[in-house]
Design a protein around this nucleic acid. Structure first.
Length: 297
DNA sequence: CTGGCAATAT
DNA sequence: TATATTGCCA
């Protein structure tokens, strides 16, 4: 990876076939197609997997491979979020790879807060892929394979207790004044989380707060260290994608930005436990009327 | 363009 | 039911 291939003269892809030698050179030593395990083949035999409680991996399709390779390419090139300045019209859409990344790195949400309730989210449930158009449309039409990725509609977000906790932490830290969807989204630092996701959740959350007076938080609390519990190390990535003139608020101190997690999204029904999935009782728009965060804090 | 909010959709 | 989307206005 650290080596660059000189493409200045021979690299023009569609040009002449004069670069065959180089490509053969490249392929030399690689296993042939016959030596490779088919995609449908499990790396771990089912019996062995079940013996060790390893959840069965889902069969990979060409579409999966396509996405994975796109993500690889993406990570090798620009690791940019979609900003106004970034010109991404060429081939790689940040959104597409972000979605792929999200799907591949499932829910690693746990990993902060050891005292978190051991909810059985990690029940080994793999979120399947949304588009069931298993047929490779690019093979049929040869176009819009990239555009489709952005057009893929995201699975609906599940506000797990972990996600919700992060949400509440950020919101209470910001205070009612500064807690706007965009800011919340940025500070939550959850990969794949959209502004709309936050806005929708925030709307409900405010309705909840309205009937629970006393929990509301006015101004930004600069002193509390709600993010101190979450270990911060790497991941100061892409925080500088803000426009140069945008003001850097005191609460955007990098050390407060928690470790990135991945938004867990699902299709229909799976083992994901919503943060408010209590059983009966009084709840208002999903927010428990009594103490919704007892289990989360 | 973003945010807030109610209504409506999935 | 939980979340998404839409429409309208600030």
């Amino acid at each position: 990876m650290g080596k660059e291939v000189d493409v200045s003269d021979a690299g023009i892809v569609g040009g002449g076939g004069s670069d065959d030698g180089r490509i053969l050179d490249w392929e030399d030593g690689l296993p042939s197609g016959d030596d490779l395990a088919p995609l449908s083949m499990h790396l771990v035999p089912p019996e062995l997997a079940s013996a060790f409680s390893i959840p069965p991996a889902d069969i990979k399709t060409m579409l999966d491979v396509h996405r994975a390779s796109q993500q690889t390419i993406y990570s090798l090139t620009a690791h940019h979020k979609p900003t106004a300045s970034s010109q991404v019209n060429g081939s790689l859409k940040p959104f597409a790879s972000s979605a792929a990344e999200k799907e591949n790195c499932l829910m690693d949400l746990e990993a902060e807060d050891p005292d978190e309730s051991p909810l059985s989210e990690a029940s080994g449930r793999l979120p399947e892929f949304g588009a069931e158009e298993a047929v490779d449309s690019s093979a049929l039409h040869g176009e819009n394979s990239v555009d489709d990725q952005r057009a893929l509609k995201r699975p609906r977000l599940v506000w797990t207790p972990q996600l919700h906790k992060r949400f509440v932490d950020v919101v209470t830290h910001l205070g009612t004044k500064n807690a706007v969807p965009k800011t919340i989204m940025q500070l939550m630092n959850v990969d794949g989380l959209t502004r709309e996701n936050v806005a929708s959740h925030l709307q409900k959350y405010r309705l909840y707060l309205k009937r629970m007076p006393g929990f509301s938080n006015e101004g930004p609390s600069s002193s509390d260290h709600i993010f101190a519990s979450t270990t911060v190390q790497q991941n100061l990535h892409e925080q500088s994608s803000l426009p140069p003139n945008s003001r850097r608020m005191p609460y955007t101190v990098p050390s407060m930005i928690p470790m990135p997690i991945y938004a867990f999204q699902h299709q229909q029904s799976n083992g994901a436990v919503p943060f408010n999935n209590r059983q009966g009782g009084a709840s208002y728009h999903g927010f428990d009327a009594h103490d919704p965060y007892a289990a989360n804090n």
